[in-house]
Design a protein around this nucleic acid. Sequence first.
DNA 1: CTGAAAGCGCTTACAG
DNA 2: CTGAAAGCGCTTACAG
Lengths: 338, 338
Amino acid sequence: MATIADVARVAGVSRSTVSYALSGKRPITRDTQDRIARAISDLGFTVNAGARALATAQTMVIGLLVQFHDDEFAPAMLQYILGTTAAARERGYDILMVTDVDGVAALERITSSNMVDGVVLLDVTHDDSRLATLRSARQPGALIGLPADTEGVDVFDLDFEASARMVVQHLAALGHTEAILITPPRHVFDRGGAYGWRFRDEAIAEGERLGLTVIAVHGESQQPAISAHVHSTLDAHPSSTALIVHNDATVAALPEVLRDRSVRVPIDLSVVGIYSNDFARTFHLPYTAIESSPDALGRCAVETIVERILSANSSASAVTLIAPQLIERGSTGRVAQP
Amino acid sequence: MATIADVARVAGVSRSTVSYALSGKRPITRDTQDRIARAISDLGFTVNAGARALATAQTMVIGLLVQFHDDEFAPAMLQYILGTTAAARERGYDILMVTDVDGVAALERITSSNMVDGVVLLDVTHDDSRLATLRSARQPGALIGLPADTEGVDVFDLDFEASARMVVQHLAALGHTEAILITPPRHVFDRGGAYGWRFRDEAIAEGERLGLTVIAVHGESQQPAISAHVHSTLDAHPSSTALIVHNDATVAALPEVLRDRSVRVPIDLSVVGIYSNDFARTFHLPYTAIESSPDALGRCAVETIVERILSANSSASAVTLIAPQLIERGSTGRVAQP
DNA sequence: CTGAAAGCGCTTACAG
DNA sequence: CTGAAAGCGCTTACAG
């Protein structure tokens, strides 16, 4: 394994000159540069990342904290991971992916040992126990998901309130007066998944303003309960002309259930979802939906982390709620006049 | 940030003593131990991972090389990632997840810069271009997926030949004489995904031995082509009494397609898949299937890597094909006597 | 434009 | 049972 000292010897210069040639942080003669380049290529030299990290106090690694609850629909999570990882690479960072059940301990471990320069937390809940650890860490952190206390952390999330208004306005404009909303499962609310109630509460409130009654029910998290629940919910509310689904597992099961019931979309029922375009492609979901933008959220989080790593200037942290976008896929229609 | 020197000063001992207390590599007086422990906790000291890595030449990080082809069904990949990550943590290693489009460059980057102690390659193809890089790397590597040349690398994969025989024998024993096999999409074969033809060729051969004609067709990779293709394939072979599906995306779409056709399983058609139990749960797939064991494969790969990291003894590399297991879910039946 | 030297925070022979 | 010192492979003031 060639070191910078080997390169220096072969090139007939000092180690510092090799280092500066590598970083470009000071001018080097054309000739010296060439000799160094040749030595590097002859020796197959690569900078040792650990040694560089020790000297610069920069690891060029960002930690990604993922939590897989086994009552959760994992495929949706993958999109955040990929968005984050791609964005990190574009900025020259690698991703240390941590999936420990004990997220607090994992966060403590990778930050206090200086394995990472910053950290992105996925699936942040209302009173996320990882935040205390993050606040006392040396490294900056960005959250995906809105906690109650946003003091000192950068937060990124979809604007679920605006999303709810957008969906309700869309349906109200089409003449709907009663809609069913299938929210995330109860355990998501219990765990503090604020996106659940943020969307639901605003949907109900906006519905009241616009004369659209929103009937909210918790979705199930496991098949076959999911499908059975959609059936019984539709049975229970025959007067509802629209269905809003805010739950990945349920929306993935929806095509089959609606086919079973011979429900024609949008003639018999208008359907609106909240999911990403990638998700729509993977599962062939033909519903008009709010784009949940996992890729964009991951990218924003990484960008902000990198900014904070580079500029020691600790500007005020911010909460960024991404504006929703309604992707029309033709699954909503005007209510038939009786 | 407290260093080991701070701990030593506060405890009134030398740095080496603190280090040895940490590692337990030499006996320390009870009293000295206590003073060090107190100093560590008072200062909130944690070993700097980078410095330790530099001194020991061990990063305690394993690289995981994932390739997301956008014509691929991503959810299946996630299971390998989770199995690998969990197994690594159990052995004290973290996972550096790399998803670069250029896998060769990514592998070169993380190995030559010594960011990792070993590496796991996912989705290895018949003539995987990453293998040359891996062979010249300092770190050991384990593959998931069987390449043509297994020289010097540890390989883990499902025994697809045995899987094919098991499926065909199962169907033949039930009296089936003609079965359709939907293989992975053509581009998987083109790319060198050996699992495709390993299963297919052996299924056909075993079928010939047992009097079961296996009609192999390539699956599609994107909806709505997937569903349309299953329909047309079933239409084209009305005499087939069994369907074998070796393709995640197709099997995920199967319940809907069969419902559309009012096909009763297993009365009208026996169905066998090749997928993991986790996948079955997530997508509620009720078919008898060969367990593809992504978790077990990920674990085995990590275990082997760790063994090689620890015991410098470079014992011969091996190819490990996991024995298949047929999980009965009641989707196959005896052929009706005409 | 280039070099000699200190330092990043650890571990581990070498000595006692 | 414990310490002083060298070394892991870099970077970066400090000097010239």
